[in-house]
C-alpha cells in the first residue's frame, strides 16, 4: 500500500466557500488531478488572514494542502488568476457562480476529471474578456459531455433513425432528440427549432472555446437553448441549480432596467 504524502501542492479553482466555526471557511476546490476536494481554510474570515483573499470563489490559486484526519486543510495559498472583470460585473459574476455550482453539483469528490477543469478554466478566462452569448450554453453542453451525459443530437433517441430536417422535439429525460414519428408516452418534451439544433451540434463538435466565443446568437435561439440546457441539467442533477434563479433575476433586471425592477419589487411589497 502506498502512503500519500501528508502535504501536497496543487492548483485549484475555488468553487465555493461556506463559513465554518468562528473564523474559518470550508472551501470546495476543483483541482486538475484530483477533481473536487474540500478543505478547511483556518482563519480565512479574519481581516488579516493570509489565506482569505487567495481563496475567494472563482479564483485560480496555487495551494499547499495538508491531509487531515477527517478534512484536509489549506496551509498556504496564492492567487494565480483573480478574474477581476468577472468579479466586478454582476451579469458575468452571476454566470460564473452558476457555472461553479454546476461543476460542484455534477462531480464526485476526489475523482479526477481534467477536461472539466480545463473547461471551467477556459470558460472563466473567456468570461473575463469581451461578452460572448454562447459561452454559457457551450459550458453547459460540454460539462454534460464530460460527465457522460452528452445529449444525442443526431439520431432519434427512441427509434435510432438519423434525424431528418423537420419539427424536432427534445426529451431531457431520454437524453436527446425525438423524430417526428416517435411519441413515447409519459415523456416530457420540449420544442426544438432547426436553428437551435444546428447551434447545439456546432457547440458539441466545437474543439476550441474560441470558436464558441465567436458565435453570434439571436435572443430566440439563446432563450430556447437556455431552456433545453436547464431542463437537461435539472434531470441529470435531479434538482434545479440554485444559481440559475439568481442568474434569471440578474439578467431580467438588466433587460428590464432598474426602474422596472424597482416597480416590480415595490409591487411585490404591496402584495406581501
Amino acid at each position: 500500500m502506498t502512503t500519500q504524502p501528508r502535504i501536497h501542492k496543487t492548483e485549484a479553482i475555488v468553487l465555493k466557500h461556506l463559513p465554518l466555526g468562528e473564523a474559518d471557511y470550508l472551501v470546495t476546490l476543483y483541482t486538475p488531478n484530483q477533481g473536487k476536494l474540500r478543505a478547511v481554510a483556518r482563519g480565512a474570515r479574519k481581516i488579516k488572514s493570509r489565506l482569505g483573499g487567495h481563496l475567494e470563489p472563482l479564483m485560480r490559486s496555487s495551494l499547499l494542502v495538508a491531509r487531515g484526519q477527517s478534512l484536509d486543510s489549506v496551509q498556504q495559498a496564492e492567487v494565480l488568476e483573480g478574474f477581476r472583470a468577472v468579479r466586478e460585473d454582476l451579469d458575468r459574476l452571476s454566470q460564473a457562480i452558476y457555472m461553479a455550482e454546476l461543476v460542484e453539483a455534477s462531480t464526485p469528490e476526489g475523482q479526477s476529471n481534467y477536461p472539466i477543469y480545463r473547461l471551467l478554466l477556459e470558460t472563466l478566462r473567456s468570461l473575463d474578456g469581451p461578452a460572448a452569448p454562447a459561452l454559457l450554453p457551450h459550458f453547459q453542453l460540454k460539462l454534460l459531455g464530460h460527465s457522460g451525459f452528452m445529449p444525442e443530437l443526431h439520431r432519434c433517441v427512441e427509434c435510432e433513425t438519423p434525424l431528418e430536417p423537420g419539427r424536432h422535439r427534445f426529451a431531457p429525460g431520454q437524453g436527446g432528440c425525438l423524430c417526428d414519428g416517435c411519441h413515447p408516452a409519459g415523456v416530457t418534451v420540449l420544442p426544438l427549432s432547426l436553428n437551435t439544433l444546428k447551434v447545439l451540434r456546432f457547440l458539441q463538435r466545437c474543439e476550441r472555446i474560441e470558436d464558441a466565443v465567436k458565435l453570434r446568437l439571436d435572443d430566440e435561439t439563446l432563450t430556447e437553448m437556455r431552456r433545453l440546457m436547464e431542463a437537461l441539467l435539472h434531470y441529470v442533477l435531479d434538482r434545479e441549480p440554485r444559481g440559475s434563479r439568481f442568474l434569471g433575476q440578474v439578467s431580467q433586471g438588466s433587460k428590464r432596467g432598474a426602474a422596472a425592477e424597482l416597480a416590480a419589487s415595490a409591487a411585490g411589497g404591496e402584495q406581501a
Binding site: 466557500h17 470563489p57 468579479r87 460585473d89 454582476l90 459574476l93 438588466s254 432598474a258
Partner: peptide, 19 residues
C-alpha cells in the same frame, strides 16, 4: 469584500442608481 458581499453590493447598486 467577499464574493457574496460583492454580488449584493452590485445588485443593490443596480437598483439604487436611478434613485
Amino acid at each position: 469584500p467577499s464574493l457574496e458581499g460583492e454580488s449584493t453590493a452590485m445588485y443593490v447598486h443596480r437598483l439604487l442608481s436611478p434613485l
